[in-house]
Design a protein around this nucleic acid. Structure first.
Lengths: 205, 205
DNA sequence: TTTTGACCATTCAAATAAAAAAGTCAAAAA
DNA sequence: TTTTTGACTTTTTTATTTGAATGGTCAAAA
């Protein structure tokens, strides 16, 4: 009997291989055979660790989104100025978006995958956690009398919708592979609007 | 020889018929035959007034966007409070978006059509004019010392991008025919964020 | 317990055929 | 001369087929 720890590390290896393929080409364009070949293993062996492609995708999504949420959390715990850290989160968002753009985990371009209830609920959960983190930060800003007496939940939702909307503008001018400049332009716009937004909810005494 | 005025009124009749079809079903789903039949005329007769479908579409787009720009202009000339009129513009935008949603003049869903250079430049011109109108209003707000010393052009662009982005969120949850609630939710979000945005650029003495 | 070659079933994409729509023209009607 | 039309051609779109690629299984070996 092999150790659980070795099985886990093999799973980890597969995940990393899958992420490499997924994020260079897309999920749709990478085959299970390619992932197996990259790792010099057979396809059935892959299926020994992951029952099907969907569960592999979900595991990948879980890993990546955990990394993302951890990065935000890290920023919030290590920061003092509330509004500065909110701007930093925008940068973190964009780093991740750029890095894992090809996965199209955000938009519904991965049509077929997104019919899967598990993936849907995973992403819903991530969005919820993300929202909770940002909301906590905004609530803290309110507590510090930095912000006006706003409805924290609603304001947070607006803030996030605004960012997402600006993000979508990138996909709207749908070149199959969006140029690097497009990402940077989006980031820039998001930062500018966020600054105005934060000014808009800032207390002015 | 028939009068020019009669020819023009016939063109107008055709335009109205086309708009009716286009906005109930989409541009793609309405055929030249359907438009002709609606008006009890033959297809070749239609082609006597419009050389091809594209030029008919462009004429329709021109008519509608003129109506839109006129509505904004009207609002701006008849208003006194700058920020109030900016919020009203959001409502006007949404009325038009809802009314002519099926035309998909905004987004690039009308793929084929949008390869047409004439239509592209028309829409670019409309966007430019729209931007100029809003910019004038924001500039007026600045002149009245209502707003901070901001870069009017950049701020206007951000304001519009923010609205467009929020608009796109509607299409992101792409149900083929978006529910009426979705429109209203978008309008509501746009108004809320716009209020915060305007607070953000407002002078606070 | 982990790994694999050989295999099946399903899905996807290229090719093709069928249908529909865009667009033309010569001639008639106004 | 301007406007209108029936009959026709060409182009585009849609449906169908078919062959290859891919996801997924299994019995057997390591």
């Amino acid at each position: 009997m092999n150790s659980k720890i070795e099985t886990d590390s093999k799973r980890e290896l597969i995940l990393e291989g899958a992420i490499r393929r997924f994020s260079h080409f897309s999920i749709q364009k990478t085959t299970m055979n390619e992932i197996a070949d990259d790792l010099s293993m057979s396809k059935p062996n892959l299926y020994y660790y992951f029952p099907d492609k969907t569960s592999l995708v979900i595991a990948v999504a879980e890993k990546i989104t955990d990394e993302y949420l951890a990065a935000i959390d890290e920023e919030f715990t290590n920061s003092d100025a509330v509004d500065e850290s909110l701007l930093k989160v925008i940068i973190i968002r964009n780093v991740f978006f750029k890095k894992y753009y090809m996965l199209h985990i955000n938009d519904g371009q991965t049509e077929a995958l997104f019919k899967d209830e598990n993936l849907r609920s995973l992403m819903a959960g991530v969005k919820e956690k993300e929202l909770a983190l940002i909301a906590a930060q905004i609530r803290e800003g309110k507590r510090q009398n930095l912000f006006k007496t706003i409805d924290v939940e609603k304001t947070t939702a607006l803030f996030m919708d605004m960012l997402t909307g600006l993000q979508l503008c990138i996909g709207a001018m749908k070149s199959p592979v969006p140029a690097a400049e497009a990402f940077d332009e989006t980031l820039h716009k998001q930062l500018e609007v966020a600054r105005i937004f934060l000014d808009g909810i800032r207390r002015n005494d």
